[in-house]
Design a protein around this nucleic acid. Structure first.
Length: 426
RNA sequence: GGAAAAGUAUCGAAGUGGUCAUAACGAGCCGCACUCGAAAUGCGGUUGUCGAGUUUUCGGCACAUGGGUUCGAAUCCCAUCUUUUCCGCCA
């Protein structure tokens, strides 16, 4: 949710920044509605003040035995006026709210305008592995080893689902355990949230109302605000934990991570060209979230980027870090860096982590505040999130980058302890 | 899923149509006094939000949420949510 005050004070600047995201904002309607709203409120408050004053006198008059019928008549009329104004003010507020609800976050000023083509690689780690044999893709490797069962996954649930089997399930679990262990070392609190969330969580995270078709809905109420959905990322849960609360400043930053599967419809996506486990309807992910003081949120952001990168680095995978152009950041985010791992068979880098700073956008939507020690007043805090990491992209990268000539897979050193000492999958 | 009870500030809790909503009473927290210091005691302060002025301020709204009745609702009525207890089901 954007700050109406910031729009009032810097209309053109905000407009320009949003345009970098490819979003053409119309603020005039909203600003007019706000003026109208204030006018009505000023008016109705005078009526209400009068009603309160008169109401307080009625018991006294009654005690003195004075007639009050005439006053009741006047008050009834005043009551009607109040109801009418309240109605109008509410309508203005609702319109303003609805307009603001669908506006994306303002990108940070240093972001370039445009889409993917303007993303900038800011860091590259390791080298593309070279093979002195004919390299295979992860789908063939996994199928031959029997560690991923695509066919039976499809049999159970349709396209975009697979089964992890045997050493495959073990490798997946080892990855998750490795991530969890690393985050615990860094002092993050481990959370296992519900996978089914209420509408308000989707709204708070900024996914709804605009992207409510991208998740799986439970229940059948026609009114989606009454239904629950399967979370598309643990961020949706973590970022709403403190909705409506005022957090003591001394508790910031608060650092969490959660493991959940992520459920996504991925309707109309690139399924055809993305075989295997690159894009599924259900994948495992460990997600990191920080609640930060606004002045410290860049610091938190850098920490999250470094954490995500260090996980891949420890796995010994070749990857790069990209700073996304404004238009490639998701709607809720002011700034995003992607960590992309090399998938040899595809000849491209694929996102394994997306680290973002929402600034106060999510906090405004779900009303999460901290008490500022300087002013003593509550203020919106900043929320940040980053995958740490999504296994479904790391897994194929490991399979492909660690493949041997005979089709077996060497287990990355850091995972060996989590695989019970096993060093090769064959 | 069924039944009953409950939801008021940081916590416990009183208020059951107007005079007791910033909200009694108790505790916590902050400041001051007493003290060499602490404890104890005493005094004062301690919600959020919106609007108008912006140096002191004034006013509206909020008693789980949303409606309704009324000149007037924490209080009466309806719906929803949550919690607790009991019953049912269950890993």
């Amino acid at each position: 949710m954007l700050d109406l005050k910031r729009i009032q004070e810097n209309k053109e600047k905000v407009k320009e920044l949003l345009l970098r995201k490819g979003y053409e904002a119309d603020f005039d309607t909203i600003l007019e509605l706000d003026i109208e709203r204030k006018k009505i409120i000023s008016e109705v408050e005078q009526y209400k003040a009068k009603r309160n004053k008169v109401s307080a006198e009625i018991p006294k008059l009654k005690k003195e035995g004075k007639p009050v019928d005439g006053i009741f008549q006047d008050m009834r009329e005043l009551g009607d006026k109040i109801a009418e104004c309240d109605e109008k003010a509410k309508s203005c507020e609702k319109q303003i709210f609805d307009l603001l609800s669908v506006m994306p976050n303002i990108p940070d000023e240093d972001l370039l305008a445009g889409e993917k083509e303007n993303n900038a690689v800011i860091r590259e780690v390791g080298k593309k592995p070279e093979f002195d044999f004919e390299m295979k893709n992860h789908v063939d490797l996994c199928t031959n080893l029997g560690i991923i069962d695509y066919q039976r996954g499809t049999k159970l649930s349709g396209g975009g689902y697979w089964l992890y089997r045997g050493d495959g399930a073990r490798l997946e679990w080892a990855l998750l355990n490795f991530f969890i262990t690393e985050h615990l070392k860094d002092g993050y609190e481990f959370i296992l949230p519900p996978h089914q969330l209420g509408y308000n969580c989707g709204f708070g995270a900024g996914q709804f109302p605009k992207f409510s078709d991208e998740v799986y809905w439970l229940d059948c109420d026609e009114d989606r605000t009454k239904n629950r959905f399967m979370l598309p990322t643990a961020e949706t849960a973590l970022v709403n934990m403190y909705a409506g609360e005022i957090i003591d400043e001394s508790k910031l930053p608060m650092k969490f991570f959660a493991y959940t599967p992520c459920y996504r419809k991925e309707a109309g996506s690139y399924r055809a060209e993305e075989r295997g486990m690159i894009r599924g309807h259900q994948f495992n992910k460990v997600e990191m979230v920080q609640y930060a003081h606004p002045e410290k949120s860049m610091e938190a952001f850098n920490e999250l980027v470094d954490k995500a990168a260090s996980l891949i680095e420890k796995l010994g995978l070749h990857f790069r870090v990209s700073k996304l152009a404004a238009g490639d950041c998701s709607a809720s985010m002011a700034r995003t860096y992607d960590i992309e791992v090399w998938i040899p068979s595809m000849g491209i880098y694929k996102e394994v982590s997306s680290v973002s700073n929402a600034n106060d956008y999510q906090a405004r939507r779900n009303n999460t505040k901290y008490r500022d020690s300087k002013t003593g007043k509550p203020a919106y805090l900043h929320t940040l999130n980053g995958s740490g990491l999504a296994t479904s992209r790391v897994f194929p990268a490991i399979i492909e980058q660690y493949q041997n000539a005979d089709g077996s897979i060497r287990v990355p050193d850091v995972l060996v302890p989590f695989m019970g000492g096993q060093t090769v999958i064959k």
